Amino acid sequence: MKDIKNFDTFTKIEAIHKGWSSDKKYYAETNSGERLLLRVSDISEYEEKKHEFDLMKQIAAVGINMSQPIDFGVCAGGKSVYQILTWVEGEEAKEVLPSLSERVQYEFGWEAGRMMLKMQTVESYPPSSDWANIYGERVSKYFEAYKACGETLVGEDLLISFLEQHSSWLDHRPMCLLHADFQSDNMVISPENKLYAIDFQGSGIVDPYYALTGVMVTAEVSPQFSTGQLHSYFGGQVPEEFWKLNAFYMAAESINAFAVAVTLGQEEVDYSNEMMKAMLEWFDNFNNLIPSWYKD
C-alpha cells in the first residue's frame, strides 16, 4: 500500500472486519489529524470502483451527510485499486436506534427520507420500460441462483407464485441515482446526533421504490425510524403503489439473499429463514401488503 497517494502521512492504519463486501477496509489517521476510511479492491474491479467513486462524488455534491470521497487510484504495483474517504465518527444507526425514544427514532427516520429526496435531484429519468427490463432480468438470475443453491427457503412457493403473478408492477417506473442499500446498517449517528450515510457500494440508477426497500430491513430494528422515513419521503400518505412494489422487491431480494447465504454457511441460512418468517408475518403471507409494523 506504500504507493497510495500521501501514504507517508499515515500515522495509523487498522483493518476493519465488518460487512459482506470483498473490499479490504482500513481506518487510517494522518499526521495532520485527519481520520480516513481506506478501501482496497482487486485491480479487476477498477472500472466498477471508479464508477462507484464518481457516483459518490455526484451525491456528495448536493450536500448529503456522508463519507466524503477524497481520492481514487491504483496501488500495490498495479494489482489493487483504492478509494480514500472521510471517516464518519459515530455508531451504526442499527446499534443506536433501539436505545432512543420512539419520537427521536421517528425524527431520524424523517431525516433519512429527506436525504433520499435530495439524492434524487442528482440524476433522474422519467417513467419508462427500462427498469422493468433491468430488474426483470435480475429476477431471472435470482431464480437461477436459487435453484442451483440446493437449499429450500421458507415460503418458497408463496414467493415464487407472488413474483410470477405480479411482474407487470415493474412497468413504467422512473429511475434515479440512489444509495441502493439505504438501511440502518449503512447509516451512522454521530456524537452530534446527525445522521450520515455510508457504504455506497452497489449504488446506481434504480427505481426509487426499490431503494426504499431498506425501510423493511430497518424496521426489524426500529419500526418508528422506518415509518418516519416513509412519511418524510411521501409527504405523509404512503401510496398503495409503493406497498405493492415494496412487497415484490422484498420477495425477489429475499430469494437472492438466501442463495448468497447458502454460500456463507448455515448460520446465514438460518438467519435468512428467520427473516423470511418475519416478512411473511408482516405481510400475512402476502394477503396484506402493508406490513404489520407500519402505523399510519
Rank of each mutant, 00 (worst) to 15 (best):
K2C: 06
K2E: 15
D3P: 11
I4Q: 13
K5S: 10
D8K: 15
T11R: 00
T11C: 01
I13W: 00
I13C: 05
I16L: 11
G19F: 03
S22A: 11
D23R: 14
K25T: 11
A28R: 03
L37V: 09
L37I: 11
L38T: 01
V40K: 02
I43V: 13
I43Q: 08
I43N: 05
S44H: 14
E45N: 13
Y46H: 09
E47P: 00
E48M: 12
K50G: 02
K50M: 10
E52F: 04
F53I: 05
I59R: 02
A60H: 08
A61V: 00
I64C: 04
N65R: 08
M66H: 04
I70D: 01
D71E: 12
V74N: 07
V74I: 15
V74T: 14
C75D: 06
G77T: 03
K79A: 10
V81D: 04
V81G: 05
I84Y: 00
I84P: 01
T86C: 05
V88H: 10
S99F: 04
L100G: 00
E102Y: 13
V104A: 08
F108T: 12
F108Q: 09
G109L: 07
W110Y: 11
A112R: 00
M115Q: 15
M116I: 07
M119W: 03
W131G: 07
E137I: 02
S140H: 06
A145L: 08
A145Y: 14
G150A: 08
T152H: 03
F162N: 06
E164D: 12
H166G: 05
H166C: 03
W169K: 03
L170D: 02
D171F: 05
R173S: 03
R173Y: 01
P174S: 09
A180I: 06
F182N: 08
S184M: 01
S184D: 15
N186I: 13
V188N: 03
P191F: 12
P191D: 06
K194H: 11
L195F: 05
A197I: 14
F200W: 15
G202F: 15
S203L: 09
G204F: 04
Y209A: 02
T213K: 15
V217M: 10
P223A: 03
Q224F: 13
Q224K: 15
Q224W: 09
T227H: 05
H231F: 03
Y233K: 10
F234P: 10
G236H: 05
K244N: 11
L245P: 02
F248D: 12
S254K: 11
S254I: 09
A261D: 09
V262R: 01
G265W: 12
Q266P: 00
E268F: 15
N273V: 05
M279S: 03
L280W: 07
N287Q: 12
N288L: 07
L289A: 07
S292Y: 06
S292F: 08
S292I: 10
D296K: 14
